[in-house]
């Protein structure tokens, strides 16, 4: 695994009830890139993310992660490579204590207990949650849960970090804290989000999904300056690019 490319070719997904979630999606994401996938509700973002980790099987098209095509055989390796953080941290945290939760992945990788303990300690420190180690996850605040959920994935040393709505439901301080944390990660990062200001700050590249197809793919600032595109895809400029709502400066 040398360059951790994520390559999606003509991906199509139709749900059992006939809903076409993805019509034809193609893109390539290179090592170290930080990419946002944005779009209106129902544009296919979550479906796309579930494909990157092999939960959903495509009706047609292909996905390659690094040197492997995504197949049943390569699934275990791909799931280690692609760390997935779910939108609702409560779905991700299911063990009695934070420690057990963060240790769940490394144990499944077959690492010895001492190594697991070291890893858990290191990643919890990295996300600033070392003091929560023995707490039960359901007693944590939203921001703490999110950071622990990220730690559960980091403990498996993934190369690619995929996050569904990382900042949703967080207070401004927790959001800032999380963004600082994400900015420092050297991984290839793929986010879906409606928090467009976060996208501007963290992602150099943005892919816009609209009704199951890639409507635009390019530098984030370019995309957010294309008013016609944004309007068509039921999006709007991030607040930080809209100018002052009181005095009108910068409009």
């Amino acid at each position: 695994m040398s360059h951790h490319i994520v390559e999606v070719k003509h991906l199509q997904h139709v749900y059992a009830d006939g809903t076409v979630a993805l019509q034809d999606v193609s893109f390539i994401i290179h090592h170290g890139e930080s990419v946002a996938i944005i779009g209106a509700n129902g544009a296919g973002k979550s479906t796309l993310l579930l494909h990157l980790n092999g939960y959903l099987t495509a009706n047609s098209g292909e996905i390659r992660i690094g040197d492997f095509p995504l197949t049943k055989k390569t699934l275990p390796e791909i799931r280690r490579t692609v760390g997935m953080v779910f939108q609702d941290a409560d779905d991700q945290l299911f063990m009695p204590t934070v420690f057990d939760d963060v240790a769940f992945g490394p144990f499944n990788l077959g690492l010895p207990v001492d190594e697991v303990k070291q890893r858990v300690k290191a990643v919890l420190e990295q996300v600033g949650a070392a003091h929560l180690q023995e707490k039960p996850p359901y007693h944590l605040s939203g921001g703490e849960k999110k950071r622990v959920a990220i730690a559960t994935v980091l403990s498996m040393s993934p190369d690619i970090l995929v996050m569904d709505e990382p900042t949703s439901g967080l207070d401004p301080f927790a959001r800032r804290q999380l963004m600082g944390l994400l900015r420092d990660f050297q991984h290839t990062k793929i986010f879906t989000s409606h928090d467009l200001d976060m996208v501007v700050e963290l992602c150099q590249r943005t892919i816009v999904l609209h009704q199951g197809i890639v409507k635009a793919d390019g530098p984030t600032l370019e995309i957010f300056n294309d008013d016609a595109l944004l309007a068509e895809c039921r999006l709007e400029k991030p607040l930080s690019m809209q100018g002052c709502p009181v005095c009108g400066k910068g409009r």
Partner: peptide, 24 residues
């Protein structure tokens, strides 16, 4: 649905039908 999401989260972290505890 929720159980399925939790199962997904478990699979994402390499769950293969085996649980491990830290007590040796």
């Amino acid at each position: 649905l929720r159980a399925e999401r939790i199962h997904m989260a478990m699979l994402a972290r390499g769950f293969t039908g085996e649980f491990h505890s830290r007590q040796v």
